[in-house]
Design a protein around this nucleic acid. Sequence first.
DNA 1: TCTTGAGCCTGTACTCGCTACAGAGCCTAT
DNA 2: ATAGGCTCTGTAGCGAGTACAGGCTCAAGA
Lengths: 137, 137
Amino acid sequence: MNSHLSAKGLQRHQLARATGCHLETIRYYERIGLMPDPPRSTSGYRVYDEAHVRRLRFILRARELGFGIDEIRGLLQLVDCRSQTCAEVQRRTEPHLAEVRAKIADLQRIETTLVTMISQCSGKNVPECPILDALAA
Amino acid sequence: MNSHLSAKGLQRHQLARATGCHLETIRYYERIGLMPDPPRSTSGYRVYDEAHVRRLRFILRARELGFGIDEIRGLLQLVDCRSQTCAEVQRRTEPHLAEVRAKIADLQRIETTLVTMISQCSGKNVPECPILDALAA
DNA sequence: TCTTGAGCCTGTACTCGCTACAGAGCCTAT
DNA sequence: ATAGGCTCTGTAGCGAGTACAGGCTCAAGA
């Protein structure tokens, strides 16, 4: 007879595959309210559609960009209630950019330190380690 | 009589204050072996010195830069075993450097994305926000 | 001297953002 | 009819801390 899924519905593993998301993470996002509770087939299987795919991609990309769950919740609220605006999203995004830049700067500093140390260690014994001072300073 | 701390020893909260570290985190690092078990006063209080301050700063800075505990353990081994040859130091440092560079690259990708999105965003009070669209795409 | 209050001690439980698993049910193919 | 692979639920575990309970110690003030 009918498949247990209606016309174009996706199963959980299909949604996972379509987004690169871990299987269990989908359920987790539903539990914490980032993803909506999806409709169910007669036997209780979750049934997803393209809207779910897009929303999950949004969440995953935002996570990748370093947004925390609560920040994403905020961004999704902007998506959900279209009353809010571009200005608001920009306001939320800018501090995040500053943070990313600070991290880059920090890492470039340690990169320099590591490079320096490696170049200083060309074949002799190491009486002291410059990493400690560079980091602890 | 004597203070319960010897000459220049620091108490836990003093070490915390000197490094900006959370009080309990110090104990945690001791438990997992990143920080050594410090000497104790007669009544069992931990007694720290400048070496502890420097080591803890090292750890905190490395954590801030995204190193995992095990990576930091590796870096600290470089610090601890100063009797090793340069070749050995290099061998153990280079993977860390590669990792730092990979992180920088990732963060720069994120930075570019955020900059692009913000610049496309008008900042006006309109509901069509390119950041949301860029993320959801 | 006694009391107060801040600091210390230990152990354990909680957080966040997942991830894994147990034990059950369902669906399709052979 | 049975094997296998998927689904369901609930719950436990992880890393890296953070918080708290219940008790001990110490320095300073009344």
